[in-house]
Amino acid sequence: MTAHLLRARATRQLGTFAGLVALSVVLWAATPHFLTVSNLLNVLEQTSINAIVAVGMTFVIVSGGIDLSVGSILALSGIALARSLEAGLPAPLAIGIALVTGLMCGVGNGLLVTYGRLPSFIATLGMMSIARGGALMAAEGRPISGFSEGFRALATARAAMIPAPVIITGVIYLVAHFVLSRTVFGRATYAIGGNEEAARLSGIQVRFHKTLIYGVAGLTSAAAAAILTARLNSAQPTAGTNYELDAIAATVIGGTSLLGGEGTLLGALIGALVMGVLRNGLNLLNVSSFFQQVVIGTVIIVAVLIDMGLKRGRR
């Protein structure tokens, strides 16, 4: 990768980050409740679930695919977790079962895309319905709730004031960033997204890596499910509806191209924060909930428009 390209990528992130800062400045000017330690921690905690789902989404989108099933996989993993806790399994084992559930669903997506040769849109659309139905069946349509204090610490614990979900999100991002930027798997992800045929010809095991990429998306959805379940003290078969759209939005606001081959996790994290700060700010300002949706949609479109304009300008 040339130095020029590296610099281009860094500036793009700087742009998204500047957007986040500008947004915060506006909110700070508009309401005294925004820039307080407790509110900022509150925003970080609220953002954690979307941010974690966006990790897997970034891997998939960088590889040139899309994953519509992450919200449903989140629900199914959450129910698997709740059922295990209900059966009296210790919390770490129950969380392990949830993670395996998510991973299996993701790998299922991956196999459909690679060996089944289905477009990722179709494979994950099918999985979206299958996992949702599975969650409803496993839960008999009802929420499962009432868990031990120990398990709920996943959402309620604090270390030096920082809520546990924020710390977990930070750790997941550090690990995922290392994987995406410093490992063979990460380089394969970019290569496949850039030009799949070229990646194959240069000796990358495309099927293997792609299957794994969807597995990562399933895994991060399951991790988000564990936090959501602890946070609400309840697992719902209808949880995570539309979360795939929030995760896609966070990813593209962060400068990841839906065409594949480029994008970073730092961008996704900033994108998730933009969405979280925006929702929080609109609540603080008491903007009508209908207009909030208009604002969020506008921000997504404008962020991508600016990004595209800049890319064109640089060429």
Partner: peptide, 18 residues
């Protein structure tokens, strides 16, 4: 210029309802 763009936009979008 990009920074300026984003600031203006954020103000337009958020400042209005605020």
């Amino acid at each position: 210029t990009r920074l300026a763009w984003r600031v203006t936009l954020a103000i337009l979008i958020l400042g209005g309802p605020a």
